[in-house]
């Protein structure tokens, strides 16, 4: 079984994330980045499925030069191979365009099972898996908090707002997993050493038969017109409950601000 994990390289959430002033796109080149933490859950799921049966796990990423780090992390965790789609023309692509690139690459890889994270930690749209499923004409079971694969049947549990559902589909299929799906493993020393020898291919838009006018900033279907940094919150009042007066002061605040 050919398992492909779509994993995104994102700016580090704990560092300074910013926009490029020239075109209002997310600055991906000038900042520290890493494999999106939510996509680590996808890698973990793929490895677990492989270990429970058989298969080969490929990490697929669309992104600039540094995005190779996302693949490296996946390989260190235990994936078998990597594919990096990197092309000048991709910069500024929106979700619709990204889903086109991923769909073309997945077609070329002839994936049986495609595993996504629930959302990227930068854009956090959570729409790319459904878009890719739509483009490939494959069923999608999304936001799995637990996943089992038996033969060609994929079954997930999905904890929604009003119910906990069991959802089923048949391979080939698109799957996305939540951060409830099982803690991602850390790369072992052996894994880190082994990763160096694993094959990583780099593909261009031409390799995927995508013309440059189908993707990138110029063809994006959405445009950011303005970016404003949120003004810092003004410093609040902080009291200490040492003498047990905290509750009374809290009630006073609630009352003055008409919350009671």
């Amino acid at each position: 079984m050919k398992i492909v994990v779509c994993a995104k390289f994102v700016p580090d959430a704990t560092a300074d994330r910013r926009f490029r002033s020239e075109d209002n796109t997310v600055d991906r080149a000038g900042v520290d980045g890493l494999l999106s933490e939510l996509d680590e859950y996808a890698v973990e799921t793929a490895l677990t499925v492989k270990e429970a049966g058989e298969g080969e796990v490929t990490i697929l990423t669309v992104g600039p030069e540094q995005a190779a780090d996302a693949i490296k992390k996946g390989l260190q965790m235990g994936a078998d191979a990597g594919v990096h789609v990197n092309d000048e023309g991709i910069h500024g692509s929106d979700a619709v365009a990204t889903s086109l690139i991923l769909a073309k690459a997945l077609g070329k890889l002839e994936a049986d099972l495609v595993v996504f994270g629930m959302a990227s930690t930068d854009g956090s749209m959570g729409v790319v898996p459904a878009m890719v499923s739509e483009r490939l004409g494959l069923p999608a079971v999304t936001l799995g908090s637990s996943v089992t694969v038996e033969g060609t049947t994929v079954r997930i549990r999905r904890d929604g707002d009003t119910a906990s559902d069991t959802v089923e589909g048949t391979l080939p299929l698109v799957l996305s997993v939540s951060d409830q799906s099982g803690e991602p493993r850390y790369p072992s020393f052996k894994g880190i050493m082994a990763a160096k020898k694993k094959p990583v291919e780099t593909w261009s838009l031409a390799d995927l038969e995508i013309s440059p006018d189908q993707v990138g900033a110029a063809s994006a279907f959405t445009e950011v017109t303005e970016v404003t940094a949120r003004p810092p919150r003004s410093a609040g009042t902080i009291v200490t409950d040492e003498d047990g007066s905290g509750a009374a002061q809290l009630v006073e605040f609630l009352s003055t601000n008409k919350f009671l």
Partner: peptide, 18 residues
């Protein structure tokens, strides 16, 4: 850093009293 009002204290004391 975010609050309009903060209480430094044990929630098990502050909340029931409030």
């Amino acid at each position: 850093e975010l609050v309009d009002f903060g209480v430094v204290g044990d929630l098990h004391k502050v909340l029931p009293a409030t």
